[in-house]
């Protein structure tokens, strides 16, 4: 045979999960499935608007339209101010809100889809040997691609309103990366739980909606009374949303200390979620 011979041992216990405590092993493991992840992600993006006349155009149009609605409701009806001076504040508000939403939807899209990620693919669980751990990741990558589409809309809007874009926007990946790790960890956890407890999906969507309003997205953190700030500091999503806005809009550096803490924390969440997923993977076939 022209390919190298592999020896595998199939035991009741399954693949040991302990090595994945090492994040490098974890990433290498996922990297090994890139040939599966790439086409699935492509389909994930193309599949959203498949068959529609505008196609991927919706990826731009949908956030744009939502941006208009949010702006109208929150700045015209509720008259919330970001605390910026002058006439431009209304459009500036829209941009600030939009930036918050982009970051948040990376989290919410992935997490909302997670409980059904495995559940909706019983074929892949019971009938073939498929690396189920790619499913939540594919969803995350899809959300990231969507986020970059939205970011392009945002940059255009910034140029139109401010006439300039701060260079610190280049630091955005530094903020989004830990956000991605955190999101993926939660997604793994929910994907595994969702197989056993079918209520997970409903609970998750309620929870993400709550988080949407409890994170500084429709309002600046400054608008929150000082005594509640510590709560926001404990909400990882709030940290990511604020830091992302700082670098992308206000041209400021992120709060390095918090960002580092958040990154370490996110990695821990990812490892925990991944181990949880891999550990319960063996039992999926019994309950699907």
């Amino acid at each position: 045979m022209e390919h190298e011979e592999t020896i595998q041992t199939i035991t009741p216990a399954g693949t040991p999960v302990v090595p994945f405590l090492n994040p490098v092993r974890l990433f290498l493991h996922l990297w090994g499935f890139r040939e599966i992840i790439r086409p699935m992600t492509r389909r994930e993006i193309a599949g959203r608007y498949r068959g529609s006349w505008l196609g991927v155009g919706w990826s731009f149009l949908q956030p744009l339209l939502m941006l208009c609605v949010y702006t109208f409701v929150f700045s015209v009806v509720f008259e919330i101010r970001w605390g910026m001076s002058g006439e431009e504040s209304r459009s500036a508000f829209a941009i600030a809100l939009f930036m918050g939403l982009i970051s948040f939807s990376i989290f919410s899209e992935t997490v909302n889809a997670a409980p059904s990620a495995v559940l909706s693919n019983p074929n892949l669980v019971k009938r073939v040997v498929f690396p189920l751990e790619v499913l939540p990741l594919v969803r995350l990558l899809g959300s990231f691609v969507q986020a970059f589409f939205s970011l392009a809309v945002l940059v255009l809007a910034m140029i139109a309103v401010f006439g300039t874009v701060p260079w610190t926007i280049l630091l955005l990946p530094l903020v989004w990366l830990p956000l991605g790790l955190f999101t993926l960890g939660i997604a793994y956890f929910l994907a595994a739980i969702g197989v056993f407890i079918r209520d997970t999906g409903a609970l998750t969507s309620i929870f993400t909606t709550m988080l949407l309003f409890l994170s500084p997205i429709f309002y600046p953190l400054r608008a929150v009374p000082e005594r509640f700030h510590f709560l926001y500091r404990l909400n990882p999503i709030a940290v990511f949303v604020e830091e992302a806005r700082k670098v992308a809009l206000w041209g400021a550096f992120p709060d390095w200390g918090w960002l580092f803490a958040a990154a370490v924390f996110s990695l821990a969440v990812l490892i925990f979620g991944f181990l949880w997923f891999m550990k319960s993977k063996n039992a999926f076939a019994d309950v699907l």
Partner: peptide, 19 residues
């Protein structure tokens, strides 16, 4: 299904050499 790896045995083990 055990040999193909779709199912995991409850007891015992399997060693498979090759694809």
């Amino acid at each position: 299904q055990l040999i193909s790896g779709v199912l995991r045995p409850t007891e015992g083990n399997l060693r498979i050499r090759g694809r």
